[in-house]
């Protein structure tokens, strides 16, 4: 029991459990895999270059072990990324927006509309080719409470943004 003498029925409040989360665009997973692979291949390449410049071609076994470890880390993180992707999702409710993520470590972040300061769209280079966008929602609570909603179709992201901006303006209007 949350309160000893509540003035409202707490169990009847809208719950964030068992909501119908909308999944992210599957093409965003491709973007993530590409980004991930690029990062790992560049840093792996750096390692190879370093080893080559130091000892010449027959690599020192230490570097081979390091490189092997690098590949294993790459594969594990990639696997986790793919596995976790299906758990990412968002819901727009009447008065707030919810973003859920995580497979083993999961989290749900909720920002009420009347606490949003502003929002903006951003697009990485690969997201552009797939016509995807990321919606960034900023509150006054600092970086940790800002909501970053990736993997939206650009039109969809723009639509949500417009909806949110309208909500903010409605809230700021003097009430009669």
């Amino acid at each position: 029991m949350l309160f000893e003498n509540p003035s409202i029925e707490i169990n009847e409040l809208p719950s964030t459990e068992a909501l119908d989360f909308k999944k992210l665009d599957p093409r965003y997973l491709t973007v993530k895999i590409v980004n991930h692979t690029i990062f790992f291949s560049f840093s792996g390449l750096g390692l190879v270059l370093f080893a080559w410049l130091r000892d010449g071609f027959p690599f020192n076994p230490v570097y081979l072990i390091l490189l092997g470890a690098w590949v294993v880390i790459y594969l594990i993180t990639l696997w986790y990324m793919i596995k976790a992707f299906q758990f990412k999702g968002y819901v727009l409710r009447e008065r707030d927006i919810i973003y859920r993520k995580g497979w083993l470590w999961s989290s749900t972040t909720i920002v009420p509309f009347n606490r949003i300061q502003h929002c903006e769209l951003s697009q990485g280079p690969f997201e552009k080719t797939y016509n995807l966008a990321k919606l960034n929602i900023f509150t006054a609570g600092g970086q940790s409470s800002d909501l970053r909603l990736p993997g939206l179709k650009k039109e969809e992201a723009a639509r949500i943004k417009e909806f949110l901006v309208n909500q903010i303006n409605d809230h700021n209007k003097p009430r009669s």
């Binding site: 964030t16 749900t108 909720i110 609570g141 409470s145």
Partner: peptide, 11 residues
Amino acid sequence: KVQGVKLSQSP
């Protein structure tokens, strides 16, 4: 005064 809420769970 709350601006946002995050509920998280580890394994």
